[in-house]
Design a protein around this nucleic acid. Structure first.
Lengths: 120, 120
DNA sequence: AACGTTTCCTTAACATGTTAACTATGCGTA
DNA sequence: TACGCATAGTTAACATGTTAAGGAAACGTT
């Protein structure tokens, strides 16, 4: 998504980091594996990405108290701000694509893609 | 495509290298930019990939005589052999996906994807 | 011929994709 | 409790994705 990347470059983040931020904004604090699944990232990638995002002050990492294997990730104010600053424009970009394809084609494409990745 | 990757791992190549081999097998010797477009690879990626494939004896690189900026890439026998050894199984894997989705859905998905990347 | 511009490719730098090996923790059970 | 096993993350190593900058050759114009 070149237009999305171009937008995010101004905030200094990548598409993958953006997906992580959005998932956190939508579902609240979560463990690493849940984020990986929701943001379509493999765990090793997310491990690196999360470390960078923590170093950049966008998220916090904390061990879960009841299960010390789990890492709970949460948004910081700086991270929330990037979401707020870009959400509208991101929606507009997606909407532009939807318009170009036509609403019916757009929905159909999403359906077929989810069918494709339904492994069974 | 996990099943494709699993198949190719036995020949010691990646999905991207496989696409380069297939494009060369289908269209014959070509310059780098043409391959990049046909194999859906960016030029910097293809530059590295081609160097590795040459080092591994799968392709040859040669400067074009009429235009010395151009690099002409061609299959070696070893490269052709990997194509021959895997083409049938690759086709079977694709066919399996087609069956699972249904022929109509499969065609429709391809159509929608080409519509999506038709930038205009 | 000389110049500016474009084209083809390469290199560099950083980020992610992908697989395998590894650590730590939790869990079930003998 | 001790053992065996499963789960959650991490690390490592290599390959590719992505953008920007650079180098060489071709091209058009003066």
């Amino acid at each position: 998504m070149p237009p999305i990347r171009e937008m995010l470059a101004e905030s200094g983040i990548t598409e993958q980091q953006w997906r992580v931020l959005r998932v956190l904004a939508e579902h609240g604090p979560q463990d690493t594996s849940t984020i990986a699944q929701r943001a379509c990232l493999l765990l090793p990638s997310l491990t690196r990405i999360a470390q960078k995002m923590r170093d950049n002050g966008l998220i916090t990492l904390a061990r879960d108290d009841t299960d010390k294997r789990r890492q709970t990730i949460a948004l910081t104010k700086a991270g929330q701000r990037i979401v707020d600053d870009n959400m509208d424009e991101a929606a507009a970009i997606v909407n532009g694509i939807k318009q170009r394809l036509g609403a019916d084609n757009y929905e159909q494409l999403l359906d077929l893609l989810s069918l494709l990745e339904a492994d069974t």
